[in-house]
């Protein structure tokens, strides 16, 4: 099982190479500012989709309120930077903690619900979070919160994303993750195996919410402003679509889903209406021809080609 650690090390080395290449492209200005920004957005969206996958894909609890937790993190981070002049890392950690606490408070009562009821309840709670923020003048109300320092650069976004991906990958490959998957597969049998289903559902929801908060904090410090309209249920749909497109229960899939959708969206940004129509058609086509998503529940590390590439197990 020490091969587990070896796999991790290899993956980290590969990630560092990817980072070095991308950072090189950015520093040498081979990438124009538009794409520099979009690479950061991709990292943020990967955090959102991977953390949502923990809740929706692995634990099978249908959440449609992920953008609400992102909003909490974004505003927490913004307030700490602007009003309290805290260092960025403090903002990120506090964003995690705040979003996780609120996620836990929301998760405790709602995780008793299942299926569509849970979906619609989380959607409603996400909207409530947004509307409450919109009515708090201290954070700018409906006009948005302005003057946030642009602390998020590519390095921050990339390494935070890397941390989150590893955290969640290891989460799902532990007894915690197995408990989640057991709940998804058969809740009654999971209880019969001694899995406290409420506890593990709420835990997954809490951790997922916390990381959405981290993504929100990165997001707030990418643009000069945060605005409640960035966190409607339509953005939650967007993250859900990334997860489903990549494959529920595949981290590789969530990363791919976030990458592809963000890229498409950036490429078509000059034609806003057409972009959404195309997006819709692609989405429907995907559900018709590959409903399990691009990766199903397969990870890239378990594909034969990757194993050979890494010299076997």
């Amino acid at each position: 099982m020490s091969s587990l650690r070896k796999t991790d090390l290899k993956a980290i080395v590969i990630s560092l190479i990817v980072f070095a290449v991308l950072q090189g492209l950015i520093s040498s200005e081979a990438l124009d500012p538009f794409w520099q920004l979009n690479i950061i957005v991709i990292c943020i969206n990967i955090i959102m989709s991977v953390s949502l996958n923990l809740i929706n894909g692995y634990t099978g609890q249908f959440s449609l309120g992920h953008a609400g937790f992102m909003a909490i993190g974004a505003y927490t981070g913004a307030v700490l930077s602007v009003n309290f002049h805290m260092p960025f890392i403090v903002g990120l950690i506090t964003a995690f903690v705040t979003a996780a606490i609120i996620g836990c408070l929301i998760g405790l009562p709602t995780m008793r619900l299942s299926g569509d009821y849970l979906a619609i309840a989380t959607l409603g709670l996400g909207e409530i979070i947004r509307i409450v923020i919109m009515n708090v003048n201290y954070v700018g109300g409906a006009a948005g919160f302005m003057g946030i320092p642009k602390s998020t650069n590519f390095a921050w976004a990339f390494f935070v994303m890397l941390f989150v991906v590893f955290f969640i990958k290891n989460y799902v490959n532990s007894s915690f993750g197995r408990a989640c998957v057991a709940i998804r597969e058969n809740e009654i049998a999971a209880e019969a195996m001694g899995v406290n289903t409420t506890k593990y559902k709420v835990l997954a929801f809490t951790v997922g919410a916390g990381f959405a908060g981290v993504a929100g904090c990165l997001f707030a410090h990418t643009f000069y402003i945060v605005h409640p309209s960035s966190f409607t249920f339509l953005s939650s749909f967007n993250y859900l679509i990334m997860v489903v497109m990549g494959g529920m229960g595949s981290i590789t899939g969530s990363i791919a889903g976030a990458f592809i959708l963000t890229t498409i969206s950036a490429l078509l940004s000059d034609w806003p209406e057409l972009r959404m129509s195309i997006y819709a058609v692609v989405l429907i086509a995907l559900m018709f021809y590959r409903p399990q998503g691009l990766f199903g529940n397969i990870e890239i590390t378990s594909l034969p080609i990757f194993k050979r590439f890494k010299g076997g197990k």
Binding site: S174, R178, A179, A182, E185, A189, M193, L203
Partner: peptide, 27 residues
């Protein structure tokens, strides 16, 4: 059964209560 999981994983889930590492140790 946890029908989409491997046979071994089905059993591993049942060992759940005998594992006592925490989330950070796992992560």
């Amino acid at each position: 059964l946890f029908s989409e999981l491997s046979v071994l994983d089905n059993v591993k889930i049942a060992y759940h209560t005998h594992l006592n590492y925490n989330l950070l140790e796992a992560a």
